[in-house]
Design a protein around this nucleic acid. Structure first.
Lengths: 341, 341
DNA sequence: GACATTGCCGTAAACGTTTCTGGAAATTTC
DNA sequence: GAAATTTCCAGAAACGTTTACGGCAATGTC
């Protein structure tokens, strides 16, 4: 005899009562509940999740899908670790657990997602590295699985999302550079179809226009989001006929390769080329010269993701007034030495 | 009507036969099997994992527990992403899925593990960031859950583990520095009780002894495994009465902070202080000067972990001759410019 | 042609929960 | 003190699978 049945036998009561006592239902006397809880603790009883899932049709777990391919989310640094912490802080309030689902490099994210959802492993899902046209969004809406995307997409629909303030970052970077006297400002965007690149570029264009500067397509450099990409970026910048005096990066670690390329040419960021990076992280803080970039609260972002997701799940929604489930997460500019200010 | 029952009704055969057909059992006629498979595909049927788990008592998933606390595994860079890929390449052969379990910062890893295992979410487990005395090991052996640790521990027992070649790296770093003429060689080790620090230090000591050099405890600097730790390390090195001419790092990103500290004192790695880092990664490759460090195959490591774990699980063991489930993963020195050679 | 074997399939039990239903006992109500 | 209500619990069904068992027909064996 195992599980709840054994517990019931031990206490000489029915398994139904044991279950109700453990789950805090009303119709069980205080003393019986007490006995059950004590016996459960003593015997180290924990309910079998498979049985519970089968019966109630849920799993009490939330999934977070990430893509392992380095290019897809820019080298996978400590970004997600902070976000996971934030998400869990919210889920813990409801006894929900977080499981991370890593899509292998080279596997189609949509196919992977299909496989994982078929397992019915989670009740809700967070997906990241949103592509411009993302098949996963249609799939999840069709499957009626609650989800939220970290990153906007162009896929139409009324699904919830949260995204970093790419437009704002691009705009403020341009503003800062223009007021420092720069007029020829290059921009680096990812070479794949991840959506953030398009938004970043749009923000850049809009900011230029507001300053009355013409948009020059030659100043848009598409490179993979990696240190090597930064090195290539440097090469392209130096090879330009009319060399720009500043560059804005969509990904902070591009600066490493860029710095190296500049160094090999006897040049230095901040002095010979103004550089504004993207997200502040431990590496950008210790590069020389220190990178001017944008700070955000990773755990705060994670918590916002968790709350927005729960707001769309009927079982938890009452605690989270639906409100805005589509929002832009703010970033704050932290000046470094790389923009020559 | 849902699930297998609906499928059976549609085909007008029993659910037992459907199940056997889908699971490739022998006693079902070829044409029936064909019909079932086609109907399942047409209706988009996928077996309910909860029902299956409940019946067969397993989950067809393997867990990989990581710790989010930045200090615990050295800043969480792309290390794990590569390993996940390798693990999945092996698991896929057996239709096993990988789920990553991120232990929140600040939560006791053993408590977290207990919670997750109670959910019976996975059939086997990989744990990382092994501590010198690791409560999780006793817990898992007691629970009879197949597991493997990424990182040795001092906890006694015959459990499987894989570890990076910390001793070899320390030894070869010392060898290289000594033959370049250095005799006062400092070493950085983590300030917490993560086990790799002790092994790294032991390798260092042994190598010194082999060269007839005395071990000087003053040359052992304990700092957190982060860029800031590297900065502190630089401070301590520069403040030493008898300043060392070389330093060996247990974690490559320490070099970033160290470089900065040196730069602020007008010094440079390679020229004024020989530096040998630990693991090669994209960042270390683009630091200036490029860090001398050790290369390893992350996906290879992941695959080895997966195979060693499966070798201990009865259901899969036959494919993996038990052999050595305790092994050291090799690393290859890649010369940079930071050691002045 | 009687018998044993084989191939295929239906039936039903089991996995560990939760929850619906009913009902006995205790309490309250007039 | 009978009726109505409440409190608490037992019993059983249900969730979706897998699999042990048995049986019927078809095939093989002498």
């Amino acid at each position: 005899m195992k599980g709840i049945r054994r517990l019931a036998q031990e206490l000489d009561i029915s398994i139904g009562t044991v279950s109700r006592a453990l789950n805090g239902r009303a119709d069980v006397s205080p003393e019986t509940r007490q006995r059950v809880l004590e016996a459960a603790a003593a015997m180290g009883y924990v309910p079998n999740q498979a049985g519970r899932s089968l019966r109630q049709g849920n799993t009490n777990a939330i999934g977070f899908m990430i893509e392992l391919g380095a290019d897809a989310n820019g080298g996978n640094d400590n970004f997600f670790m902070g976000v996971f912490d934030g998400v869990q802080s919210v889920l813990a309030r409801h006894h929900l657990d977080l499981v991370v689902l890593p899509c292998p490099t080279g596997e189609d994210p949509a196919v992977y997602l299909q496989r994982m959802m078929a397992r019915r492993l989670v009740d809700g899902l967070i997906i990241s590295a949103t592509h411009r046209k993302d098949a996963r969004i249609d799939m999840l809406t069709k499957m009626r699985i609650p989800f939220i995307t970290l990153g906007r997409s162009n896929t139409p629909g009324d699904y919830p999302w949260i995204d970093l303030d790419f437009d704002g970052a691009a705009r403020r970077a341009v503003d800062r550079l223009v007021s420092a006297g720069h007029s020829r400002i290059a921009i680096a965007v990812p070479s794949n179809d991840i959506n953030l690149g398009f938004i970043f570029l749009d923000g850049y264009k809009a900011a230029l226009a507001r300053h009355g500067l013409a948009f020059d397509p030659a100043l848009v450099v598409r490179v993979p989001s990696s240190e090597l990409g930064g090195y290539q970026l440097g090469h392209e910048l130096l090879a330009m006929k009319e060399r720009p005096s500043a560059v804005i990066l969509n990904y902070e670690l591009l600066a490493l390769g860029l710095y190296r390329q500049l160094g090999e040419a006897g040049l230095q960021a901040g002095r010979d080329l103004a550089v504004i990076g993207f997200r502040e992280n431990p590496v950008s803080r210790y590069m020389s010269p220190r990178l001017t970039c944008f700070r955000l609260s990773l755990t705060g972002l994670g918590a916002a993701i968790g709350e927005a997701l729960l707001a769309t799940m009927p079982a938890y929604a009452e605690a989270y007034p639906l409100g805005r489930t589509q929002r832009i997460w703010p970033m704050e500019l932290v000046p470094g030495e790389s923009d020559g200010a």
